[in-house]
Design a protein around this nucleic acid. Structure first.
Length: 500
RNA sequence: GUCCCGUUCGUCCAGAGGCCCAGGACACGGCCCUUUCAAGGCUGAAACACGGGUUCGAAUCCCGUACGGGACGCCA
């Protein structure tokens, strides 16, 4: 039997990194097993679902490199009629019943608290059970009659009084739940008879012939309800594999409302992440290949991936809301830097190009006559960059004459030594005559100049760095001279005199 | 409240009875390299939640406690 998995987001906002990880694990499992990776948009909540959100989710998947789903996208809202028909059929079969209890409106804001309170209250009531609905045992004739008379009703699944449901979770193991713990869940809303989540998921998974349901652990206990629906529908249940949750540093569920943009996948794209790096980081949250490897290629991830390698304990996504340098998990940042400095330059270049384009630093020559120079420059500067943004930020002085001087660098490397006012132009004169203009040639000339002037080479090296790049830190200075070139180097040395 | 799940360095992971006085990575400290900052090399500090069992032997198995998380909706 070929494996068929699906990623089923509800389009009510951007793609959450937890959802992105769920998608990734589904994708990896499909690719690993030679199965199909399907996509289903769960847009049954018409109030909150937007096309914009659907688009952003698709973009996010594509960005991560897992947008190659194998069949047409299924929009759950298109299947509402089928889901309704299935529920109505269950009434005929005596597996579900009409509940004529008037609908009670719930304020969305405090639902979670209300539910807990209601559960407490019910537990306190003597002899109360989930099977006490007065309409549960109404005869089919009477039920049909009242429905035909136009009385509004919801449809509930008739859960057996005795017994329990079982399923073997591929991650969490054997799961058992007493029927007494499960209420007669609503399948169809009263009024418009629109299908509810649990019914829709099961019906669609059946229709899409999904064999493995891989999703967040927040669905673990509700899975029993779904198992009951599968049984009522007379269909074998798929394999379930629940994933541990990704928590915020305070161990609460990572949420959009409380934690902001750090949970949005698009943030990482917008802040200069390499898709492969972020994907690599995400894969290691809740899963590991079983050894000490940290950097894994996509091929390695696919070949090593297994449901057995998934953990049971939640992972904390570590970041700080008060420290800008730790705006996201440090390991994600490190992973990104690792990719930036080690990935094939040919793969990095297009990403740098689009970053430079949006910063108006890109020149067509970089792909034509200046291509060799451009690549040499990227090779040099990428060694200490963390995100793509650094190419237009710290990398600016290499690509444009319009760059800023870091005041601290100026204070430390230029203002401290008044003699530089004379030394810098003199060094510029000396360098003007260097042949050939290479890192070695410049180094020899600069050291000779320092000796002759009776100053340490370090003084000239550090002041040159600031004069040429505006910064106090950077690559080996002789490589910087090389890449910035004779004309610009000489000019910047002379111009820097004003800053001394 | 009820049910379910979990608990190895600050964080992410390795560990499936002796290889572990617990290993790797990020972050942090030191040293080396060095013109700076990184990278790299070496190195330091840093954890098996607690209590009982089982066993010749437990981070690993069992029980309990504590703590954390999740679910319980005519949301998805």
């Amino acid at each position: 039997m070929t494996v068929r998995v699906r990623f089923a987001p509800s389009p009510t906002g951007y793609l959450h990194i937890g959802s992105a990880r769920t998608a990734l694990f589904n994708w990896l499992y499909a690719r690993k097993t030679g199965g199909k990776f399907l996509l289903r948009v769960e847009d049954t909540d018409l109030q909150r679902s937007t096309e914009e959100s659907t688009r952003s989710i698709l973009e996010g998947l594509a960005w991560l490199g897992i947008g190659d789903y194998d069949e047409e996208i299924v929009f759950q809202s298109n299947n509402a009629d089928k889901h309704r028909a299935a529920a109505l059929r269950l009434i005929e079969e005596g597996k579900a019943y009409r509940d004529f209890t008037p609908k009670e409106d719930r304020a969305d804001a405090n639902v979670k608290r209300d539910i807990a309170e209601r559960a407490r209250a019910q537990a306190a009531t003597e002899g109360a059970d989930h099977r006490s609905n007065p309409f549960r045992d109404l005869s089919l004739e009477e039920s049909n009659g009242r429905a035909q008379a136009g009385e509004p009703f919801a449809v509930r699944l008739k859960v057996a009084r005795e017994g329990q449901t079982h399923f073997a979770d591929a991650v969490y193991g054997e799961q058992t739940r007493d029927h007494s713990e499960i209420e007669d869940l609503v399948l169809l809303r009263s009024g418009d008879l629109s299908p509810l989540y649990n019914l829709s998921v099961v019906a669609d998974d059946i229709e899409m012939a999904v064999t493995h349901v891989i999703r967040g652990q927040d669905h673990l206990t509700n899975t029993h309800k779904q198992v009951l629906i599968y049984e009522a529908l007379g269909t074998p249940v798929p394999t379930f594999a629940h994933l541990p949750l990704i928590l915020a540093p305070n161990k609460a569920k990572l949420s959009k409302r409380k934690h902001g943009e750090v949970v949005s996948l698009t943030t990482y794209r917008d802040r200069g992440f390499i898709p492969a790096a972020f994907r690599n980081f995400l894969a290691l949250l809740g899963w590991s290949p079983g050894d000490d490897r940290e950097v894994l290629s996509l091929e390695e991830m696919i070949s090593e991936f297994s449901l057995e390698g998934i953990h049971r304990s939640n992972a904390v996504f570590n970041f700080s809301e008060s420290d800008a340098r730790q705006w996201t998990d440090q390991k994600a940042l490190w992973m990104n830097a690792e990719y930036i400095r080690t990935m094939p330059l040919a793969e990095l270049t297009p990403m740098v190009r689009s970053e430079l384009e949006s910063a108006r630093l890109w020149k067509p020559e970089y792909e034509a006559e200046e291509r060799a120079w451009f690549e040499r420059t990227l090779e040099l500067i990428r060694q200490r960059f963390y995100t793509l943004k650094d190419f237009s930020g710290q990398g600016r002085a290499y690509l444009s004459d319009d760059f800023e001087f870091d005041p601290q660098a100026v204070a430390k490397n230029l203002k401290k030594e008044p003699r530089l006012r004379g030394l810098l132009p003199a060094l510029a004169d000396a360098l003007e005559k260097v042949e050939p203009w290479t890192a070695e040639g410049v180094e020899a000339a600069l050291r000779a100049f320092a000796d002759a002037a009776g100053v340490k080479a370090g003084l000239l090296i550090n002041s040159s760095r600031t004069a040429l790049t505006g910064q106090a830190v950077g690559p080996s200075m002789f490589d910087v001279f090389d890449v910035i070139g004779r004309a610009r180097s000489v000019k910047r040395l002379r111009d820097a005199t004003q800053l001394v």
